[in-house]
Design a protein around this nucleic acid. Structure first.
Lengths: 190, 190
DNA sequence: CTTGTGATGACACCTGGTGCCATCAACGTA
DNA sequence: TACGTTGATGGCACCAGGTGTCATCACAAG
């Protein structure tokens, strides 16, 4: 038996998401979140750099997964093929059990501009990780940046489709679909 | 003669940039900026939604310029040609007289993560404005989004090159150059 | 039994940001 | 002249996010 209940970080995330859903992001204070989780305000800021960050736990792991998958792709793979492999690799992080939670988070984020801004930052870090990994494979700029941009768009589109209540397919499938649509659209830009 | 000195907004921007350059973004309080500008804290927040925003005055006008130029492009223009025209249209907003000021702002923004985050938001709004304008021309998704993404990348690259101390060319020229490099790179992603 | 370590609690403190009302110049109108 | 209106600002109280600092407690190692 430890002095504290375990999984403080996870408890904070769940308490925050539930509170935000019930009463809205800025009607909920950090003190209220920590009270619900049985902790204190100071502890919250030991786990998360700021109030927004509690809704984006795990994004760094996602970026690493992307980068490692791109690095692990066969040497013969084109940039688009490497990104496709990375989208497949993240599929495990977007299992069916995580979908309901992802929907809740997305509902909160979509309704608050500060949170959408933070989401953009996370997407930018994801693109940067992809571009770095592609450059490490020998892809020169601006091709590496461009491919990362397309990969980011495919991820965003795929995530939106995966979270859609009407959707029943897995993340990898819809994301790869979005990627191939983007590749096809490339020819129409003139 | 008015009760107040004119151009309160501009005075706030200049006072803020100079203070940030001298002592760093988060060592400077809003109260200090307004004191330097001969105003009060409350007035600052009437002109800018938050402390960061004072460094991004004019970004909304830029988005509008982009959107209008895309809308005004000839009906025969391809998406890339429309974006190229938009890059040309913004050239007047990036005259040689604005370059030194842009460099100062960029130096402050580059050294603070909160400010880089806000910059990402502005770029995202620029991309959204481009994508909307392209869709209004009849370009379907995902081609419109993809072209906007490429346009955003061209803008970012062009701006970085224009601000570079070693550069002597105009913004429109370097931005269009970046755009054509991106279009060429499109063929290598396959 | 002692010592160290790591996570937490407790508290003071600063500053960004807002609501609310007062103030004052300019302008129009009678 | 007198008066009301409008718009930008000042002044002030207040809240909440975020930080620095020290105390506290469980647990492990010796």
């Amino acid at each position: 038996m430890s002095r504290w209940e375990p999984n403080a970080r996870e408890r904070l995330v769940r308490a925050a998401v539930e509170s935000f859903l019930e009463r809205g992001y800025d009607e909920v204070t950090v003190a209220e979140i920590t009270e619900r989780a049985g902790l204190t305000k100071r502890t919250f800021f030991r786990h998360f750099a700021d109030k927004r960050e509690v809704l984006f736990a795990g994004q760094d792991i996602l970026s690493r997964t992307f980068a490692e998958a791109i690095a692990a792709a066969p040497a013969s793979a084109t940039p688009i093929e490497a990104i496709s492999a990375a989208l497949t690799a993240t599929e495990t992080a977007f299992g069916p059990d995580h979908r309901e939670f992802a929907r809740k988070v997305q509902a909160v984020v979509a309704n608050h501009s500060d949170l959408r801004e933070r989401e953009l930052l996370k997407r930018a870090k994801l693109r940067a990780a992809m571009a770095d990994a592609l450059r490490a494979r020998g892809i020169p700029d601006p091709a590496a940046s461009l491919a990362a941009e397309i990969g980011g768009l495919a991820f965003t589109t795929g995530f939106a489709r995966w979270v859609d209540p009407a959707n029943e397919r897995g993340f990898g499938e819809v994301a790869r679909e979005a990627l191939s649509e983007l590749v096809e659209a490339t020819a129409t830009l003139g």
